[in-house]
Deep mutational scan, measured.
Amino acid sequence: RTVITEEFKVPDKMVGFIIGRGGEQISRIQAESGCKIQIASESSGIPERPCVLTGTPESIEQAKRLLGQIVDRCRN
């Protein structure tokens, strides 16, 4: 099985929602997708915060879908 790493950007102001209380939301996304997610600790003042996704191509797609759902929910 091929493990790859891909960068994905999330809106900086939504990082708190993505991580969740005590990290529970990000842990759930990682468990559900099987993908490791590392969010940069600093956005360096830019509106997007880079995340590094590591896993199989399928797990990365699943993680991006779950992250996208959270971002959409927070935008509305």
Score class of each variant (00 low, 15 high):
1 R>H: 12
1 R>C: 15
1 R>Q: 07
2 T>S: 14
2 T>Y: 09
2 T>F: 12
2 T>P: 07
2 T>V: 12
3 V>S: 09
3 V>F: 09
3 V>L: 14
4 I>P: 02
5 T>R: 09
5 T>Y: 04
5 T>F: 04
6 E>K: 13
8 F>Q: 02
8 F>A: 04
8 F>M: 08
10 V>T: 02
10 V>S: 01
10 V>I: 12
10 V>K: 00
11 P>V: 02
11 P>N: 04
11 P>K: 02
11 P>A: 03
12 D>G: 07
12 D>P: 10
12 D>L: 04
12 D>A: 13
12 D>Q: 05
13 K>I: 03
14 M>R: 02
14 M>A: 04
14 M>F: 06
15 V>I: 06
15 V>W: 03
15 V>P: 02
15 V>H: 03
16 G>W: 03
16 G>C: 08
16 G>H: 11
16 G>K: 15
16 G>P: 12
16 G>T: 09
17 F>A: 13
17 F>E: 15
18 I>C: 05
18 I>E: 04
19 I>K: 10
19 I>C: 07
20 G>A: 06
21 R>I: 06
21 R>Y: 04
21 R>G: 09
21 R>T: 14
22 G>I: 08
22 G>C: 10
22 G>H: 07
22 G>W: 05
23 G>N: 10
23 G>R: 10
23 G>M: 08
23 G>D: 07
23 G>A: 11
24 E>Q: 15
24 E>P: 03
24 E>C: 15
25 Q>H: 08
25 Q>I: 06
25 Q>C: 13
26 I>C: 03
26 I>A: 04
26 I>Q: 04
26 I>F: 04
26 I>T: 03
27 S>N: 15
27 S>L: 08
28 R>F: 03
28 R>Y: 04
28 R>D: 08
29 I>W: 01
29 I>A: 03
29 I>K: 01
30 Q>K: 04
30 Q>Y: 02
31 A>N: 11
31 A>D: 13
32 E>C: 06
33 S>E: 01
33 S>Q: 01
33 S>L: 02
33 S>G: 01
33 S>Y: 02
33 S>F: 01
34 G>C: 03
34 G>K: 12
34 G>S: 08
34 G>M: 06
35 C>Q: 01
35 C>N: 01
36 K>P: 00
36 K>C: 06
36 K>Y: 05
36 K>L: 10
36 K>D: 14
37 I>P: 01
37 I>T: 02
37 I>Y: 00
38 Q>G: 07
38 Q>W: 06
38 Q>Y: 04
38 Q>C: 10
38 Q>L: 09
39 I>T: 02
39 I>Y: 02
40 A>I: 12
40 A>R: 14
40 A>D: 14
40 A>V: 07
40 A>L: 11
41 S>W: 04
41 S>F: 04
42 E>D: 13
42 E>M: 12
42 E>V: 11
43 S>P: 15
43 S>Y: 08
43 S>C: 15
43 S>V: 10
44 S>M: 10
44 S>V: 10
45 G>T: 08
45 G>V: 08
45 G>M: 07
46 I>M: 10
46 I>G: 14
46 I>N: 15
46 I>V: 14
47 P>H: 12
47 P>T: 09
47 P>S: 15
48 E>K: 08
48 E>F: 07
49 R>C: 07
49 R>D: 03
49 R>L: 04
49 R>E: 04
49 R>A: 04
49 R>M: 04
50 P>C: 10
50 P>E: 13
51 C>T: 06
51 C>N: 01
51 C>D: 01
51 C>R: 00
51 C>L: 09
51 C>K: 00
51 C>V: 14
52 V>L: 13
52 V>I: 12
52 V>N: 05
52 V>H: 09
52 V>R: 09
52 V>C: 07
52 V>E: 09
53 L>F: 02
53 L>N: 00
54 T>K: 12
55 G>R: 00
55 G>T: 00
55 G>M: 00
56 T>V: 07
56 T>I: 03
56 T>K: 04
56 T>R: 06
56 T>H: 07
56 T>N: 07
57 P>G: 06
57 P>K: 14
58 E>A: 12
58 E>C: 06
58 E>M: 06
59 S>N: 13
59 S>G: 09
59 S>R: 05
60 I>P: 00
60 I>A: 01
60 I>M: 02
60 I>G: 00
60 I>F: 01
60 I>W: 00
61 E>Q: 13
61 E>I: 07
61 E>T: 13
62 Q>P: 01
63 A>L: 01
63 A>C: 12
63 A>S: 02
64 K>M: 02
64 K>W: 01
64 K>V: 02
65 R>Q: 14
65 R>I: 15
65 R>P: 01
65 R>E: 15
66 L>W: 04
66 L>Y: 08
66 L>G: 05
67 L>H: 00
67 L>Q: 00
67 L>P: 01
67 L>Y: 00
67 L>A: 00
67 L>D: 00
68 G>R: 12
68 G>I: 07
69 Q>G: 13
69 Q>E: 15
69 Q>K: 11
69 Q>R: 14
70 I>T: 15
71 V>W: 04
71 V>N: 09
71 V>H: 03
71 V>A: 06
72 D>R: 11
73 R>Y: 05
73 R>P: 14
73 R>F: 07
73 R>H: 14
74 C>T: 14
74 C>D: 09
74 C>S: 13
75 R>W: 14
75 R>P: 13
76 N>G: 15
76 N>H: 07
76 N>D: 15
